[in-house]
């Protein structure tokens, strides 16, 4: 294990120290360079088995983890099913015990319910990566976001970062609040009051129920996807009204610092939470987030797969 990161699993950002986060970010920087090589592959995790257990649909995150595993030469296997497979009689614990019998080294899990990654980690020998558990955490998203911010702003400490939208349903928001707070940023969350979970300030952020005051002087603006599939729809009248009062358009973006960057974890509802002109505009770093996602996930798989820091720095 690399010095600075001693966790056996990556279940969330809440419990990670600044040193641990920085270790992952630094390693992610080094892996980023592999994407530019003609042969985008290193032998680091050869012989290791990584299972992508995606019990909630997410093509993007799964693909990102798959590519990360392949670039490290690990054997990746996808296990995709509906979370409701319990209806057929198989519980998550059954699935875990079956996977454990196949002796994988790392299991990446995406699941519709909070706490599922923790539950899996209690029942299986492999290292667990939480790729999103309900509305709880999505740590690799927060890490890739931090990596993107750091690349553009050279530091994270002291920055003002605004997270806008459906905070209550968002694991991305929770992981980002925890991570950015630990890294010393001033985090603001903003959205209609019906999207702000009770006591969110206690997580280490300030809450705003309109986005204009939150955007003032911001270095980073992170828009969240309105999760219409999670019944977010009854928390606001309609998407047209949402866009009008809470969407990020050029006029609102002008309230932020002139060099503020715009982020979105994807997939976007264009014209709802984000104006297409802003999404594709010069301050958008949305596609860079995606490329950094692969590098960060390589770093995480590498650290949990038992790769040694020295070995990599020599290569």
């Amino acid at each position: 294990m690399t010095k600075g990161f001693t966790q056996r699993h990556l279940l969330g950002m809440e419990k990670l120290s600044r040193e641990e986060i920085t270790t992952i970010l630094d390693l992610g920087e080094r892996f980023l360079e592999i994407a530019d090589r003609p042969i985008k592959k290193v032998p680091t995790l050869r012989g290791k088995t990584v299972i992508n257990l995606f019990l909630e649909p997410s093509t993007r995150t799964r693909t990102s983890f798959e590519i990360a595993a392949k670039r490290l030469s690990a054997d990746g296997v996808n296990f995709t099913a509906s979370s409701s497979s319990t209806v057929k009689g198989e519980t998550l614990i059954d699935t875990a015990m079956n996977l454990d019998a196949m002796n994988p080294d790392i299991v990446v899990i995406r699941h519709a319910q909070a706490g599922s990654a923790l539950l899996l980690s209690q029942r299986i020998r492999a290292a667990i990566v939480n790729a999103g558990d309900g509305a709880h955490e999505h740590p690799t998203q927060a890490l890739l976001d931090a990596s993107t911010i750091r690349a553009h702003k050279k530091k994270i400490e002291g920055l003002t970062v605004v997270i806008c939208g459906d905070i209550d349903h968002s694991r991305v928001a929770r992981s980002n609040i925890f991570a950015l707070h630990t890294l010393g940023a001033h985090v603001r969350v903003a959205g209609p009051r019906s999207f702000l979970p009770i006591g969110v300030e206690n997580l280490g952020c300030q809450a705003y129920d309109r986005i204009e005051p939150a955007l003032e002087g911001a270095d980073v603006v992170m828009m969240l996807r309105i999760q219409l599939e999670r019944k977010a729809g009854n928390r606001f009248p309609n998407t047209r009204e949402y866009a009008r009062y809470f969407g990020l358009n050029p006029r609102r973006l002008a309230l932020a610092k002139p060099d503020a960057i715009v982020m979105h974890p994807g997939p976007m509802n264009r014209g709802v939470e984000i104006d297409p002109g802003v999404a594709d505009g010069p301050r958008s770093v949305i596609l860079e987030q995606v490329s950094r996602g692969v590098a960060i996930r390589m770093a995480v798989l590498y650290l949990l797969g038992g790769g040694s820091g020295e070995e990599w720095s020599k290569s």
């Binding site: 809440e14 309900g134 509305a135 694991r171 009770i198």
Partner: peptide, 15 residues
């Protein structure tokens, strides 16, 4: 219960 703890744990909660 819906409160500070549920906000932290990301568990769907009731007030």
């Amino acid at each position: 219960h819906e409160g500070l703890a549920s906000t932290r744990f990301g568990i769907r909660a009731q007030p």
